[in-house]
Design a protein around this nucleic acid. Structure first.
Lengths: 215, 215
DNA sequence: TTCAATATTTAGACAAAACTAAAAATATGT
DNA sequence: ACATATTTTTAGTTTTGTCTAAATATTGAA
């Protein structure tokens, strides 16, 4: 299994999760910043290997072995991100690029020992769940901050957007995973929300509030 | 710089160290388990990039930038080996294969933070010196156990052969880096040596004794 | 010094993964 | 339903790193 093949499986996994149903060629090309013709080539190869279901012009979906493989790459990615933040003092906006490389290292012992070394974490630094050795994901049951009613109070457990600019915004405004947040008021005009974190009051745009997972 | 290019530079570095002078095509091919014609192709490319000195039929040597690059890869390899043994409970015969992959991860911050996390180690689990951030190697001044005089006593600081079989032999006979070893007697017939480690007396073949670095 | 053995390079081919340009299939709007 | 727009695939090319087979250079022994 090459790195490129692993990246395609990961892409299909993420796209299946976000848009439900069959994943189309252009979506994969956009997601991977490559061309549709390259996607067709690789999709054929992966379907011959039994990792994708594919009929021409009909889009693709992961097979059971394909899903298993995708989850194993995601497990590695998220464990390495956790390692970088917890042990090597990386900030949460720096880890993605390096984890994209580390996720392709092949050694079952390495990843299981790393898991143990980190204390079998359930989520990575962005709050995304880490699959266990068997590919099982812990159910999240979270809601977006933008959808919570006025006066409700909950804990921030994850981010939907993991771009550097969004993570920087959160850092600058001292919003972190684990923070207790109360919704004070919602503006009907632009769907922005007034919140309270500890002693601080903040005003967040809908764009921001709809990228924070709360529990 | 691709992984393959890095592996060639590393190979030339090791061969320059062991056989002195220009390194020939066949030696590189043997070391890398590839064919001489493949070596010629890559050597041309690396010399065009200014990393190797090369004239046809005359063998190769590393340029200054080539040496620097080789040392940076070796630094990464040895730091990862140290990490695997010290933090993830790998044994010293299991680390090489995984480190061969990890050494190609590109991130200066990653490797410098790892160095710091490990406490800036001077040597890897086999006793080989770890180049610092600037590529400086600490001088070793060691001698092979097979060359030490009778009655001398010194500390085992490294292994020359790092094959799994040799490392297993040492583990089985409870010989480890840091052990104090005294030479009791040398057999003129086969150049084997009788030694004392702590309370234990052992008889080592010349083959074994000439693969242990002492200080 | 000359010829045979050895070492090295060249030439040509292949597989992987990408691309461009063009063709074909599907979807959509009126 | 039909023409047009969009999506997807095909065909052919490129780059990287490898290989085999053949050609060429170097070395060394008689």
């Amino acid at each position: 299994m090459t790195q490129s093949e692993e990246n395609y499986l990961k892409a299909v996994y993420h796209l299946e999760g976000s848009q439900m149903g069959k994943v189309n060629t252009n979506a994969i090309a956009d997601y991977m910043r490559t061309k549709p013709s390259s996607v067709t080539d690789m999709v054929k190869k992966l379907s011959e290997k039994g990792l994708l279901n594919y009929k021409r012009y009909q889009g693709v979906s992961l097979t059971v072995p394909g899903t298993k493989k995708a989850l194993s790459v995601i497990r590695k990615h998220r464990l390495w991100e956790t390692f970088l933040v917890e042990k090597l003092d990386f900030s949460w906006d720096e880890v993605h690029e390096v984890a994209e490389q580390l996720e392709h290292i092949e050694s079952e012992k390495l990843i299981d020992q790393l898991d143990s070394f980190l204390g079998f974490p359930k989520a990575d630094p962005h709050g995304d769940p880490i699959p266990d050795k068997n590919g099982e994901l812990e159910e999240q049951h979270t809601r977006l901050l933008s959808l919570l009613p006025v006066n409700s109070s909950s804990i921030c457990v994850g981010v939907r957007d993991t771009s550097v600019s969004f993570l920087n915004y959160l850092d600058k405004n001292k919003i972190a995973l684990g923070d207790q947040i109360q919704v004070l008021e919602k503006e009907a005009f632009d769907d922005s929300v007034h919140i309270q974190i500890g002693e601080r009051k903040l005003h967040l745009s809908n764009r921001i509030a709809s990228n924070l997972f709360m529990k």
